[in-house]
Amino acid sequence: MNNWNKQIADMLADGTVALVIGYEEGSTPQKTRPLFCHDAVAAERLVMDGRCTHNLAVYLTKKELLPAEGRIGVVATVNVLKSALQLMQENQIPEGRFLLMAVGPEGKLTELPDAESLRQYIAAHPLPDNPEVAALIEKIDAMSREERWAYWQECLSKCVKCYACRAACPLCYCTRCIVEDNRPQWILPWASTLPNIEWQINRVMHMAGRCTGCGACYAACPLHLPIHLLTKKLTQEINREFGTERPAKGNVLSTFSPDDKENFIH
């Protein structure tokens, strides 16, 4: 048993936390899966390594899965931390409810109790850019407008509107999504090319300035549609227009700073 597993087992035993969400070995050696530890015994099964790719932050807004009282520990990857920080800024996680923890390379457990410590940890642990994603975006950027439209039409015609992308995304936490709104019916509910494209455009626009780039939407898509390229590209656009800094309160599109570019006004 690792030292950090022991630490977490102790926290569960002495009631510091009522639940710990982390990862355990999956059904194949290549994969891990999320684990909800309610007691010290289960803490032995926790693992943390490069195979942990699920974004556990998606559970933080699911009240039905969490105990009503007590703190909840999360053994988090950097992607989980980034999503959790964004959720904090959007008032979705009550202060002090979650104890986010990161596991260092030597198995050292770091507790990140507040937004500021999260921000510092994230800044100190930048994630490398995925060269495959960068190459794909470059390929699509090089296309003509018509080619690009044809590419996305072809790609999204396969979408079955299962909304797995929505379910996997920690920031898609609305109790009523726009696709469920029928007064008016903004987006036709069935799966066909145009409504599929409308759905993705809406999803991506709703992620503007919020997406943390974890790739959970792509990982969840049963058809492996490269929908993460859309959010990634939008993030690039926002970085280009407004810089990589995000306002501590509100959204990059809802707030104004005097050095924002105004070159969109012609």
Binding site: E90, N91, Q92, Y173, C174, T175, R176, P247, K249, G250, N251, L253, S254, T255
Partner: peptide, 14 residues
């Protein structure tokens, strides 16, 4: 549900 508002308060800054 009470309200479909999820309380993200991004409207507040807008």
């Amino acid at each position: 549900v009470y309200s479909t508002c999820v309380g993200c308060f991004l409207c507040q800054t807008a």
